[in-house]
Structures are given as C-alpha cells and as structure tokens.
C-alpha cells in the first residue's frame, strides 16, 4: 500500500509546529541549531504562549532565527542579546522573553552582559548553543573550543598555555544567586531532544513565577566547522565534548515541585 494511502488510516502524531514559519532552514546539513529552534517553538505552541513570547536572536549562524521562529523577535548586536532581552522584559514584565545565543556571542564578546543579566536574576530564558566554534564566520576558535581543537584560528590546535582553557560559562553563571535553573543538554539523539524539551518547558513555567534567570546550554555540533559528517558529530559530542561539558541539571530551584 502506498505510504500516502496509509496516512489516512493512521493518525498524524508528529509534524511541524505552527510556531515555526514555512521557511526552509539555511543551516548546514545536520546542524543542531534548527533542532533547538524547533523544540523551543514546539514548547511555545504547547504552552499556548505564542502571543506573549518575544525572542532575541544573536549574531552568529542563528542570526536569522527570526526567519524561522513565528513569534515577535528582535535581532541583537553581537554579544548583546541578553541586554536587549533585559530591555524588553523590563518594559513587558508579564511577557515570556528568551534570548538565543551561540558560544562566541554569549561567552566571548557578550560575557559581561551574560554575567550581569543572570546576576540581576532577569526573568528571562537564556538559551546557549555551545558548539565550541564560531560557525557563521568560518570556523574560528571560540572560548569553549577544547584543548588541542583545530579551528581556522587555532590551526595547530588550541594551545591552552597561549589562549587558555575552555570557558565553563554555564557553571560560572550557576554560581550567581540570580540563576534559578541552570541545565546543560544536547540534541544529538532522540532522548536528548526529549530531555531538552522538558528543560525548555520548565524554563517557561519558571519564568511565569518571576523567580530568576533560566539558563539552558545545548552542547551542539558544527559539521562544517568541525569538518565532520553530521553522523560523526554524534560520537564527537559524546566522546570529546561531554567530558568537558557534562549534561544534566547544574542548578535547580530549591522547592523543585514543578
């Protein structure tokens, strides 16, 4: 029986959420950015908050996030997404606000904004895509690049004696009292995607309670920058990235009764 005929017998259980626009992603084949975009927008749809959510896109591969996310959005200068999000949240305190940034954006040029937004306990969700490299500009070394990692600006491997060690920004912000919920996830397997979705759902629910900043890191891949096939990035993430960026909750609200 042709697949098409089957579909009217079977029940549609999974398809694109309306909170994603009908625009093909420009990301490289296998890039986890679009998976992260989709999961966030699925949660926005499931919580029914499309009309109350405002997102902030960074400068980086996901600079075009607003082409895909079907919510009101603002495009921030490089590194400043959490400051832009602060500005939005302060004048629209009852709306859901999230910023979405890569590692160069959030942990290099935007470090001060990242630290201080969390330190103020800004009631926003900060999504941090950590693929250990500057993707959009062609694969340069990032603060989260691993020791010995070869990039276009560490052609002989990241020399920690010269340019230091990977910056554990997520652990750093978890120490700040303003951080309510800090968790590190990945989207490289179906199960990881399910867990990431739960974390995003929790974050939006926490945001309604105005109790501080939710900070979700997504250990992600960069097939082009890493010069690997998408399938190979799965193993690289598990064997090389996870030892430096272990998954799981780093900080949860004390009365974890959500």
């Amino acid at each position: 029986m042709e697949t098409e005929e089957l579909t009217n017998e079977l029940e549609l259980v999974y398809s694109k959420p309306e909170t994603l626009k009908d625009v093909p992603f420009h990301y490289c084949p296998g890039c986890s950015h679009s998976v992260a975009h989709r999961v966030i927008m699925e949660v926005v749809q499931e919580l029914g908050i499309q009309e109350e959510t405002i997102g902030v896109a960074p400068v980086g591969c996901s600079v075009f996030a607003y082409h895909y996310m079907n919510v009101d959005m603002q495009q921030a200068a490089h590194g400043r997404a959490s400051a832009v999000a602060t500005g939005i949240k302060r004048v629209l305190p009852d709306k859901y606000v999230f910023s979405y940034q890569g590692d160069g954006d959030l942990a290099a040029i935007g470090t001060a904004e990242t630290i201080h937004t969390v330190n103020r306990g800004e009631n926003i969700l900060m999504v941090f895509i950590n693929n250990g490299i500057y993707g959009m500009t062609g694969g340069q070394m990032a603060p989260t690049s691993l020791p010995g990692q070869i990039t276009s600006t560490s052609p002989y491997g990241r020399d920690t004696a010269d340019v230091g060690f990977p910056l554990k920004i997520t652990e750093l912000v978890a120490m700040l009292p303003g951080a309510l919920y800090v968790s590190r996830h990945a989207v490289h397997t179906p199960n990881a995607v399910r867990k990431f979705k739960k974390a995003i759902t929790k974050s939006f629910e926490y945001q309604k309670q105005k109790r501080g900043t939710c900070f979700i890191e997504v250990v992600s891949n960069c097939p082009s920058g890493w010069k690997m096939t998408p399938v190979d990035t799965i193993k690289y993430i598990e064997e090389v990235m996870f030892p430096s960026y272990p998954l799981g909750d780093i900080k949860v609200p004390k009365d974890e009764n959500i």
Partner: peptide, 26 residues
Amino acid sequence: GVVLQAESEVASINMIYGAAGAGARV
C-alpha cells in the same frame, strides 16, 4: 516606570534597543 543601572554603556544602549523595540518611550 523602569530605571535600571546597567553594567556598562554598551549594555545600556542595547537595553534601550530592546525596550524601544518593545514600544516603550526610553
């Protein structure tokens, strides 16, 4: 109204960008 001391002038002007984009008089 809202008054917030930012961590730098760079952060300040980007908060202005966000709040202005959200329709506020800033």
